[in-house]
Each structure stands twice: as structure tokens, then as C-alpha cells.
């Protein structure tokens, strides 16, 4: 990594560029004037949700191998508590679309998304899932971006992205969940509190 890139701090690399509340919820805040308030139930729930994202074992092509590498020993997303990859959509929280979605697969993806229990999140991993990537112009059978089929929370460019990039996206998703904001609010450019 060149010197120029290093100067970017870790938080600046995130889409929001801000740190959200990452302390353990339920902590006691001292209010001015001596009052004490415990953090809200919402915070507890969002903390739990953000730290327990169970992915669906869903990979269509090349990015699936990097997704496996993230699960592997060197990168190990179990450090964040994501390692409980569920094979059934009913028990999964996040669907990592790792690979191309073609026209025949699109209804299946939609079905899988519908079968998941709320709250559910989607990460589009790699160029194919974001926009069709290498298959954007010259093919007849590729969906030009998974967000035509299901709503996507986080996009990771790359073909395929490095394992660290997927971890980065997972941390970004965590931040989003902790902030409790919807996709629309973020798109409108509201600050993450």
C-alpha cells in the first residue's frame, strides 16, 4: 500500500465515515445534573443484530471462493460472530450474493430472499452482483445487478474482492445496523447518528 493511501484513516474508508456507538449496550450513561439513564432497548437489539449476522451459504460463482476464504482460517469472519453459515434461508440474516445472477437464477434469488425471516440484509459482492460486471454489455442472460431483484445494503466492487474487502463490507453493514437507518435514509444522505 502506498504512502498516500495509508493516510486515510480506517473510518474514512467507510461510506459514512463516522463511528457509530460501538460500546456494549446497556451501559449506564451519566447525564448532566446527576441523572442516570440506561441506553435504549433499540440499542441493545441493534447491537445484537449487528454482532450476529449469520450468512446464508449462497454462492453462484468465483466470488464464492473468496467468500470461502473469508470463512477460512486466515481471515476468519468468526471473529465477528458471523461464522454460523446457515444452509437454510429461514435461519440466515444476511445473504451475500457472491457471483453472477443470471435470468434463470433471479427468481430463485428472490425466493430465497422472501424465505428469509426479518430482519434480513443483502451484500452484493463483486462486480457481477453489483452491475453484471464483465457480463454487462455483451451477454443476453445476465441480470445487470442484483439490486434489480432484491434490495441491496452494501456493495463491494472487485472481481472478486479481496477477503479483507468482504470483511470491510461486513463491518460497514454492522455500522449501518447499529445506526438503525433504512436504505432510503442513507441514500438521501442523512448522517448516521
Amino acid at each position: 500500500m502506498s504512502k498516500n493511501d495509508k493516510q486515510k484513516s480506517f473510518l474514512e474508508t467507510f461510506p459514512t465515515g463516522k463511528e457509530t456507538e460501538s460500546v456494549f449496550p446497556g451501559t449506564i450513561h451519566e447525564l448532566p445534573g446527576g441523572g442516570i439513564v440506561t441506553s435504549k432497548l433499540d440499542d441493545v437489539i441493534n447491537w445484537a443484530r449487528s454482532n450476529s449476522l449469520w450468512p446464508l451459504t449462497f454462492a453462484t460463482s468465483c466470488c464464492g471462493i473468496e467468500y470461502m476464504a473469508v470463512a477460512g482460517a486466515k481471515y476468519d469472519f468468526s471473529r465477528f460472530g458471523f461464522e454460523v453459515a446457515r444452509a437454510t434461508p429461514r435461519q440466515a440474516d444476511v445473504i451475500i450474493i457472491a457471483g453472477t445472477i443470471v435470468n434463470k437464477m433471479a427468481p430463485v434469488l428472490k425466493r430465497l430472499y422472501d424465505q428469509m425471516a426479518d430482519p434480513k440484509y443483502v451484500i452484493a459482492m463483486g462486480a457481477c452482483a453489483i452491475s453484471g460486471g464483465p457480463f454487462f454489455y455483451n451477454t443476453y442472460s445476465v441480470v445487470k445487478g442484483a439490486d434489480h431483484v432484491v434490495p441491496v445494503d452494501v456493495y463491494i466492487p472487485g472481481c472478486p474482492p479481496r477477503p479483507e474487502a468482504l470483511l470491510h463490507a461486513l463491518i460497514a453493514l454492522q455500522q449501518k445496523i447499529k445506526s438503525g437507518m433504512t436504505r432510503e435514509q442513507i441514500r438521501e444522505g442523512k448522517d448516521i447518528v
Partner: peptide, 15 residues
């Protein structure tokens, strides 16, 4: 080509 990888975004248009 730059060796950076932290590109994840919430909005596809930002890419």
C-alpha cells in the same frame, strides 16, 4: 492499478 480494496458503499452510484 492501486493496491486498495476498501471500497464498500451503501449506494451503487458512488462507484
Amino acid at each position: 492499478m492501486a493496491p486498495t480494496f476498501e471500497h464498500s458503499v451503501f449506494d451503487r452510484n458512488k462507484l
